[in-house]
Design a binder for these strands. Structure first.
Lengths: 168, 168
DNA sequence: CTCTAATTTGCAAGTCATGCTAACTAACAA
DNA sequence: TTGTTAGTTAGCATGACTTGCAAATTAGAG
């Protein structure tokens, strides 16, 4: 995602208003590698701007995604994650603490697929699962920080799948 | 997933009752490669057993998943998909018609990842996106059959992610 | 046939995200 | 500075998908 300043420029050019809500979000998202959910952003934003609406968070996030400024990542953990890192990369999800880390695609085996079985593959989504280095230590803090809400039953054991947005 | 007969055996051994609802589902799921949702199974099951509850579908499906008889696949399209094919394979999702096809992992480049960046990778989830051969034809039927319900906005462009169940 | 624990149902509840609209305001012009 | 207006925000309702719960059933054993 571009810097708040650049985004301001882009918005202006598109006749989009530079509201304080948007500017706040631009700042909160810039260089944010925490893969926040709309809810978590809402909480943080609320501190700096009490009264801001969750609806606005979703709205703005959706616009930024439309503009190709950020990715909407669904790890199947319940809520959508927003990732301002538009570079080609994948994600690693720690099954122990729930942490999500970016994985440089170059450090992982390159993935490619031509038209397998007659399918014209355009995008390949990948998610690595395992335990992060911290949780692998002897005295790891086995605490699933991101209190996973939605459905403890099926959710707990389901097999997630990936998807990369098409060029739409 | 094992055959209905074998499943019956398994259930008996586990002191689980062989209800007609379960038997019906065993049959509907056996060799089913349509990646049905709970809802779609419900519709089909309802024809053969009017009155069956959607709740029961979810319940049974969850149990089968727990028993390792089927995978719960989340393509991010809104509803969970149930896949009785427990063999190692990936999925291809057609962005045009919404069809989901199994992809033999061997026909796609093998994926592997040791501990990238300190992470102990246990599972890697992959989903291929593109257009199926049918939709690639000149006069393709550009109809998203599986009327995607849930959230047309964010859903339409979001980047899905994958996940493979841990050995739980 | 009886009994009991496992199941099924039906409905409420919960989570996540979007639709809708009245109230508000950034951006621009006079 | 003030007026105008199209773009935005805030709230609330609604929708989709699942699960929790408790009462009513029933499969399977004795």
């Amino acid at each position: 995602m571009r810097s708040p300043t650049e985004l301001a420029q882009v918005f202006r050019e598109k006749q989009l208003k530079l509201t304080p809500q948007r500017q706040l979000l631009f700042g909160l998202l810039h260089d944010n590698d925490s893969h926040p959910t709309a809810e978590s952003l809402f909480e943080i934003a609320s501190k700096q701007m009490p009264g801001i609406s969750l609806r606005t968070i979703y709205q703005t996030l959706g616009e930024l995604a439309d503009m190709g400024e950020l990715q909407l990542v669904d790890l199947g953990n319940g809520a959508m994650r927003f990732d301002p890192n538009m570079g080609e990369h994948q994600h690693f999800v720690c099954g122990s603490c729930g942490a999500i880390h970016d994985v440089d695609i170059t450090s992982a085996p390159k993935l490619r697929a031509g038209s397998a079985e007659g399918f014209a593959v355009e995008e390949i989504g990948v998610v690595f699962h395992g335990r992060c280095d911290r949780c692998n230590r002897p005295n790891h803090g086995e605490q699933v920080s991101q209190h996973s809400k939605r459905s403890p039953g099926i959710q707990a054991k389901k097999i997630r799948q990936v998807k990369q947005a098409s060029s739409n």
